[in-house]
Nucleic acid binder design. Sequence first.
DNA 1: CCCGAACCTGAAAAAAGCCTGAACCTTTAC
DNA 2: GTAAAGGTTCAGGCTTTTTTCAGGTTCGGG
Lengths: 225, 225
Amino acid sequence: MRALIVEDDKALARTLGEMLKSVHFESDICNDGESGLDWGLSGDYDLVVLDIMLPMKDGFSIARELRKAKIAAPILMLTARTETDDKVRGLDSGADYYLTKPFEMSELLACVRALTRRQGEVVMDELSFGDLKLNLSTCDLSWGDKKVRLGKKEFSLMHIFMSNGEAVVSKDTLINKVWGFESDAEDNNVEVYISFLRKKLAFLKAPVQIATLRKFGYRLERTDT
Amino acid sequence: MRALIVEDDKALARTLGEMLKSVHFESDICNDGESGLDWGLSGDYDLVVLDIMLPMKDGFSIARELRKAKIAAPILMLTARTETDDKVRGLDSGADYYLTKPFEMSELLACVRALTRRQGEVVMDELSFGDLKLNLSTCDLSWGDKKVRLGKKEFSLMHIFMSNGEAVVSKDTLINKVWGFESDAEDNNVEVYISFLRKKLAFLKAPVQIATLRKFGYRLERTDT
DNA sequence: CCCGAACCTGAAAAAAGCCTGAACCTTTAC
DNA sequence: GTAAAGGTTCAGGCTTTTTTCAGGTTCGGG
């Protein structure tokens, strides 16, 4: 993890760096606003600690410009100003936390933990088999730039196949998982849906097919090219 | 957007609710810790405002248990305690921001904005999907120079769609987030509003549609040109 | 080579889900 | 208080999904 510290008080900057080091951050330090912004724009920091009053360029502007450049790293604003207006301005410039000096190091570290904790963000779930992809959040099956929408049962079936790789899946298994443990669905229902899926795979021109293994079931296979 | 306020000072709770309302949050209020936790566990909130000293169960425990249950909503901890130890404890329990009373409402709202701002989004009061824009402060949906005003429910729905990009959103989710998880709204209510929104999108001639995925829900889609 | 079991698939019926106009109710603004 | 805006309910009609069915094809063992 890398942190950028933009702070003109060199002693404080160094202390911050050491504190962060104790929680496994490598820190870079800038003593003025311009260089702070430049470094921040590189985009490879996981945290930015920003003073407000700085030579050359103030912390508000830096935060604003970083956000404008789509830099998403958490910004911790650190300042002696206690006015509510400053806090509001700081947070609205794009900062994620506003901490007023003086503060204890334990508090700062707790903030840092809170800010960096939520990194397990938007996980776009997707199953894939070769280049065939099943998007679990949009429910569509795609290969290259072609996409088809799957109905619910089609989706469940495909989901099962794609989670099983190349393993054979029996009709019984499919019926149990898709139609439910105790349903009166028959083998033919599965067959019909397999047929639907094959049509869609053909439409995608995907190099993948659903192969039949008589008396055993079905499985996904790559169709070599 | 829905907020859960857990605060035993009823007057303050009500004030908070009103403040949040002005930034388009529907709030549910709990006056004790136990019910606060229960409600929070429903997982339908986009923000939790938590007092620390509460009857039945303190804010630290609530935050900890919510996180344990994988509830990811931002937690704003709100308290009179100014001890560094309390702050550290609060943040480490899972809170995302620690605000000490007394505070001004403008500060609270700035925190809320900072907390609910999706990472990577720059302009705070506008969501966008392609060229379609939803102005969060005027509730206007616009495309190019055309604009329509959305009602509150229409707005909430659109807000959810636009924060979710192209992901499918189920009717249950929509009902829980727009009408509240213990409401008796039915699927048809959602359908009616989807219908309203479609009319407005059509009026805007926006290249965006609300697609139906039968048995899954709805999602935004670009209508290719 | 022949037969039956297993499988495929188009079509159509049945069921489930969805859309929407309109009437009616509730809240808000003045 | 009143009107307008917003919200809810309802019913009939429409669309898509799911099931059913029937005739055809494939496969493997005798």
